[in-house]
Design a protein around this nucleic acid. Structure first.
Length: 696
RNA sequence: GGGCGCUUAGCUCAGUUGGUAGAGCAUCUCAUUUACACUGAGAGGGUCAUAGGUUCGAGUCCUAUAGCGCCCACCA
């Protein structure tokens, strides 16, 4: 058959992917009998709210490499794909869409909103699957899971109920991060620190001077706090009352001594606003102080602010200062005070801490076994320095707010009795009477789970824990490959939930990749306009070329600048492979192995062993580079040239081509498969995908 | 305020228990229409951030300094 001189990726890729899918070998149950020992990777579920981005392309490439390698090594390899409803993230994407259409989620019923987002997500599920396939992912689509599938939700509910029974879940009125724009609470991981320059006001508070950047919170301040050991204030006793003139008239303040106060900061005295500040909340809790809400959930001042009630903070602040000035309560104003504030990680809106009843998960008891498993390397983290990062976080873990005031998510399966406030966990939504007092008025929880509460259970939920066949075969999984940026959000929580629920680690290895950056090493972002769409690149250069560009020279945990020139280089390599194969296929020759040939074959086997070692050590960047180098500069430049000079046999040529193609296959699956399909070899299998990694 | 990572050829990066520097891309020279010009042969290019230390010997280990990047943190 006549092969064209250039490899046409576009024509080949869809055809080859179909061949693989039809072969059934993505499904470990359908692999040949030699594939016995299980190997498993659970794919980080892709958000079903948009398109495949460069980060996905990297995930798909690395995980596909691992899976294809293990499959060829004779493992019963499972790569289980998944899709994520991605609660908050998707709702934001959808809200932006609504905004563009001039609509708002606050003008819709929760049911309407849920229905629309569901439709949107369903449409995106197909879209993202098609794109994952474009990357050549050899995952088992027959096992595809979606985070809102009934069986997944059932497991999430069972876990929630178990946690509640074990007294690890509680409903509590605590200070939380509130995003006034999105109207939901956020966990501590979902806020970002932002440095701000604001005015810093020194205000007269009776005999004291207090400093604040937020005068608008000060209306209700009736506790003045200082360090018990501060000599300047030794004459004031804990609990002592003082009368003073404040913003809206005379008040009675109480002296509180608490050692959280930094004596060296400002005047060493501060007043507290427990409803809107986490530190102040802590002081109030410790000392049993009253708490009062000053700002409502939309960021407007409440009636306690008197004449300022109903105003937004930004407009109220200068007016409040003006009034304080007129009353002679402003001592001085520092102009450029630098301080750090919390913002919503999605919209950048200033977080307004609020006290609100939320569901919390006690983390310390869950973290302990996880710490142990990481410490003793039961779970190995690659690269190694992430071990410390994970341990540090786990050692300092605080209770996790798992409830969100958004509709797009898994509803928290709980009800509260109107009469006796009894909390009922009702995973099947069947209970209509309070088992404690018989009351029929039960209030159904409106909040949904933080999306990580469900995705944190992904490794065992997808494998049909506890009784499924897959759970027994494939759990614990071998590798969790994901981005280093979600080690706290996701990886740590999977470890904790899994150890709690299954008593086993969820995965033996965690492989963390870095960020994919643009060619200049800049983070990709829509605002910078430097976002690279991986599908444009596969279209232009072929998927194999993109995959190579993503893996060669990319060490774990390090970010990777993606340069189009690099991809072009591997497109050239694909052409090289193509033409080398074309040359070999055109020969009409039966010459057998000679002594020199055997030496060359031994050299290759040595290299193959080295590459195998690198693959086992997760050093795909070395393995890919080695086979690249061998194929181009040894096989093509030397061996083919020697063959032309009749220095080596056809047998050697054909053998080395075949063996090299196999080593290349995990990295460049399409072109290697396409060539394999045309090779005139004995005992040919349906596809190279199930060939033996190294011929013994 | 704590912690972590990085600093090696023009660029992007390797360099696993210490033994006098590697790859890809880029550059330059030459070759030729050969399976492949998305080609071949060759060349140039690094006091391995800086300063000390350990050692027979350090890019590799230790200490300090600087620059860059990242993460965590309740200084009003």
């Amino acid at each position: 058959m006549e092969l064209p001189s250039q490899y046409n990726a576009k024509e080949v890729e869809d055809k080859i992917y179909r061949l693989w899918e039809e072969s059934g070998f993505f499904n470990p149950d359908k692999l040949p009998s030699r594939n016995k020992k299980p190997f498993s990777i659970i794919m980080p579920p892709a958000n079903a709210n948009g398109n495949l981005h460069a980060g996905h392309a990297l995930v798909m490439t690395i995980e596909d490499i691992m899976t294809r390698y293990k499959r060829m090594r004779g493992f019963k390899a499972l790569w289980l794909p998944g899709l994520d409803h991605a609660g908050f993230e998707t709702q934001i994407v959808y809200e932006k869409k609504l905004e563009k259409e001039g609509r708002s989620r606050f003008k819709m019923t929760p049911e309407e909103l849920y229905k629309e987002i569901l439709e949107f997500t369903e449409a995106n599920k197909t879209n993202i699957q098609t794109q994952v396939k474009k990357m050549g992912a050899s995952c088992d689509w027959s096992r595809l899971k979606f985070t809102l599938d009934k069986d997944i939700v059932d497991i999430v509910y069972q876990t929630f109920e178990k946690l509640y029974k074990d007294n690890l879940v509680y409903k509590g009125k605590k200070i939380i991060n509130w995003c006034p724009k999105h109207q939901t609470s956020l966990s501590d991981l979902e806020t970002l620190d932002a440095e701000r320059q604001d005015k810093f006001y020194y205000l007269k508070y009776g005999p004291f001077t207090i400093a604040t950047a937020r005068p608008e919170t000060k209306f209700g301040d009736k506790y003045v706090v200082m360090h018990p050991k501060d000599k300047r204030y030794k004459d004031y006793k804990d609990g002592q009352k003082i009368e003073l003139e404040w913003i809206n008239g005379p008040i009675t303040a109480t002296i509180i001594k608490d050692d959280v106060i930094d004596m060296d900061f400002g005047t060493g005295v501060m007043t507290i606003t427990p409803w809107h500040d986490a530190v102040d909340f802590g002081i109030a809790e410790r000392n049993n102080l009253e708490k009062e809400q000053i700002i409502d959930f939309y960021g407007k001042l409440l009636p306690i602010a008197g004449e300022f009630a109903g105003m937004k903070i930004a407009e109220a602040r200068p007016l409040i200062i003006e009034k304080l000035h007129s009353k002679g309560l402003v001592e001085k104003v520092e102009e450029n005070y630098k301080h750090v504030v919390k913002t919503c990680y999605k919209c950048g809106t200033l977080i307004e801490p609020q006290i609100k009843e939320q569901w919390f998960l006690k983390m310390k008891p869950l973290a302990e076994p996880a710490i142990k498993a990481i410490k003793n390397n039961q779970i190995k983290i690659i690269p190694g320095h992430y071990k410390k990062i994970a341990l540090h976080w786990l050692n300092n873990i605080i209770d996790w707010n798992i409830s969100r005031q958004i509709v797009w998510g898994i509803p928290i399966p709980a009800k509260t009795c109107e009469k006796c406030q009894n909390i009922i966990i009702d995973t099947e939504n069947k209970i209509n009477t309070c088992p404690k007092c018989g009351e029929k008025d039960l209030i159904k929880e409106k909040d949904t789970f933080d999306t990580w509460f469900s995705s944190g259970q992904w490794p065992y939920a997808t494998l049909d824990f506890p009784k499924g066949k897959d759970f027994k075969t494939f759990y614990p999984t071998d590798v969790m490959e994901t981005g280093g940026d979600i080690i706290f959000f996701w990886v740590s929580r999977m470890i904790m939930f899994s150890l709690y629920n299954t008593k086993k680690i969820p995965f033996k290895n965690v492989y963390l990749h870095g960020l994919v950056l643009d060619a200049k090493g800049q983070k990709m972002s829509k605002s910078k306009g430097n976002v690279i769409n991986p599908l444009d690149l596969t279209d232009k250069y072929g998927t194999d070329a993109l995959r190579m560009a993503l893996v060669v020279g990319n060490t774990s945990g390090t970010s990777l600048p993606l340069d189009e020139n690099k991809i072009k280089g591997y497109r050239n390599f694909a052409t090289k492979i193509w033409n080398a194969a074309r040359f070999v296929l055109l020969q009409n020759d039966n010459s057998k192995l000679t002594k020199t040939d055997k030496k060359l074959l031994a050299d290759f086997k040595k290299l193959a062993k080295e590459i195998t070692k690198e693959m086992d050590g997760f050093k795909f960047y070395v393995a890919s580079e080695k086979i690249y180098h061998y194929f181009w500069h040894t096989f093509c430049d030397k061996i083919i040239e020697d063959y032309k000079k009749k220095l080596v046999s056809y047998d050697l040529l054909a053998t080395l081509l075949f063996e090299s193609l196999k080593l290349l296959h995990p990295f460049m699956p399409f072109i290697t498969e396409e060539i394999y399909q045309q090779l005139p070899i004995k005992n040919k299998k349906e596809c190279i995908m199930i060939e033996e990694w190294i011929t013994q």
